[in-house]
């Protein structure tokens, strides 16, 4: 029987991935939340995401857009607040975070299907002693929300169909799929060097308008959606059955 390690902190996981010379290019710039960092990131990228360092399921995720006139539009849950200053945006973040550590992440303008942005969930599993990418699925943004999480109302679309609907050419789709597999395996290898008892990973990967991948976050205990893929289900069962102890590393 094996152990199953869970790592909650996004900054800890991002730190590991940033140290890998082959993966750092796929990581959007990420900072711990502070008023100064928020102002700096907004000035640099105009569009950022603020989210809990140890959050789950897309809860408390805020997107902030800075327009050329210097006013912010804040998207939180289903509400959009327009015409706010950076200081007002910071005050809102602090009210939502209630003192818990939050992170600021460079926002990426995502590829869309019928003007609805989508991202990808790449599942990597280690049922025995080798990491394997077992399922990839696209997730359309939940209606009215800033996130694509399934539990928040995001809609699942088969990967190939999503790529076709997003206007990617067949050759680009194959290449992208190979790249996602490469990223999935490399991410698992990098994280596993630091956290050797990880068994399953769910990578949230966004594609920008040039269809370049960006790793938004890596879930070490990904939400399980039955029926995505036969192999994925089988490996998940195997991992669940062979796991004796689950423990968290912050």
């Amino acid at each position: 029987m094996r152990t199953y390690q869970v790592v909650r902190s996004k900054t800890a996981k991002t730190g590991v991935l940033l140290k890998d010379p082959g993966l750092d290019r796929y990581i959007p710039e990420t900072e711990l939340y502070s008023r100064e960092n928020l102002a700096r990131m907004l000035n640099k990228y105009k569009y950022v995401y603020v989210k809990p360092d140890c959050g789950r399921g897309g809860n408390k995720v805020i997107s902030i857009n800075l327009d050329d006139g210097g006013s912010c539009s804040i998207h939180y849950d289903t509400r959009i607040l327009k015409g706010k200053t950076v200081a007002e945006a910071a005050a809102l973040v602090e009210r939502i975070s209630a003192g818990a550590p939050f992170i600021i992440q460079q926002g990426i303008k995502l590829l869309t299907i019928n003007n609805v942005p989508f991202d990808l969930r790449v599942n990597v599993q280690k049922p025995f002693n080798r990491w394997e990418v077992t399922a990839m699925i696209a997730r359309l943004r939940a209606p009215g929300k800033a996130v694509t999480n399934f539990c928040q109302g995001g809609r699942l679309v088969e990967l190939k169909q999503a790529f076709t609907l997003a206007g990617l050419k067949p050759q680009a789709c194959d290449r992208l799929k190979a790249l996602l597999t490469f990223i999935g395996e490399k991410t698992a290898a990098a994280l596993c060097r630091k956290y050797p008892h990880l068994r399953e990973l769910g990578l949230d990967i966004g594609l920008d308008r040039q269809a370049r991948p960006w790793i938004f976050e890596v879930n070490t205990r990904p939400q399980y959606v039955r029926g995505l893929d036969e192999k994925f289900d089988r490996y998940h069962r195997l991992i669940e059955q062979s796991t004796v102890k689950k423990y968290q590393t912050k």
Binding site: D24, R25, P28, E29, K44, Y45, Q106, D208, Q210, R212
Partner: peptide
């Protein structure tokens, strides 16, 4: 530097 698609 790695180019991240930003003018900056």
């Amino acid at each position: 530097r790695l180019y991240r698609g930003q003018e900056s």
